[in-house]
Design a protein around this nucleic acid. Structure first.
Lengths: 171, 171
DNA sequence: CAAGATTGACGAGTCAATCTTG
DNA sequence: CAAGATTGACTCGTCAATCTTG
């Protein structure tokens, strides 16, 4: 840097705190995840949808019946119910999804992919998977990939109990 | 689920695409990172700052001279210059940081922690580090932590060339 | 009343345009 | 003109309140 701003004498205790390697460890995870998300977003947005919108479309296309209750979908995508309502509004306007009233419980709606929505996902996916290879999978050998997967699952078990069963999903 | 929404017959090709395990792999990374961020945020917000604000304060306290140029700080924190301007506005109003005009280049400003800002960081840090132990470090043994670190660095090298040198930072 | 979904008001960040200094 | 920083208009997501159905 340049002009030496008012330097603060750090006590040893203070130094030990702010220099703790665990801070660096989380920082590495966070920075890697967000930079990867950023790299993967380019190809997606070229097709006119945001990363969150693509995640929702992809989860719907991976769902067994191509449909999910709003609340479940919101939980899977890690956004709030109201956030999903608005996101679905945008997708529905573009005829990529529809909401079906659930026959057994008329409070609930089921989000469903339209043919156009499915078509768009299939159009985006090949390039998206290629991107994943280029930016993520391709940076690691088989062993690294295995142990990375194991470690991430261990962490996820802690911070998000009850995600182990379902589908994991997109990025 | 319930009422069998209009089931779509998936072609084998289509099935192979949407079920690709690489999608699951990125999904795992993303979900783990955001769930961890979520877990770590509780303790931080209890002290009246948002996670992004804490990240900026922490980076300033880790910087050699306790000061960073706005542009550099924004890049480190992974937000835009304008985003940082607004964040700094909030922190400055609360007297946690100050902007100093740089003597050698009067276009630039240096973000500096005030004593109150430093005090707040030191107040938050012990609990924050304990949280990291609880939610992240503590979920892994030493070997896992080492290989996780190596794998993440390999990925980061790909998606964010030129982050290797500097400090990594908070979550 | 509780659960599912939506709406209004708001917070926080982005891009494009602007201002100042080199 | 280019770089550093800020501002205006806008998007996206959140919380709290509301409406409907069980």
């Amino acid at each position: 840097l340049s002009g030496r701003p008012p330097t603060h004498k750090r006590s040893p205790t203070e130094q030990a705190l702010v220099a703790d390697e665990r801070l660096t460890a989380v920082g590495l995870l966070m920075e890697t995840a967000s930079s990867l998300a950023n790299a993967l977003s380019c190809h997606i947005v070229e097709h006119g949808v945001s990363p969150s919108e693509f995640e929702v479309l992809l989860r719907l296309s991976r769902s067994p019946d191509s449909g999910l209750r709003m609340a479940d979908l919101a939980a899977q995508a890690g956004i709030s119910a109201s956030g999903l309502t608005r996101l679905m509004d945008r997708l529905e306007q573009r005829r990529l999804v529809t909401r079906l009233t659930c026959s057994t419980d008329r409070r609930g709606l089921t989000a469903v992919l339209t043919p156009a929505g499915r078509k768009l996902v299939l159009k985006i996916l090949p390039g998206h998977i290629a991107d994943i290879d280029q930016w993520y999978t391709g940076a690691l050998d088989a062993d690294q990939l295995t142990s990375l997967d194991r470690a991430l699952r261990a962490v996820r078990r802690r911070v998000r109990p009850g995600a182990e069963a379902g589908a994991d999903g997109p990025g």
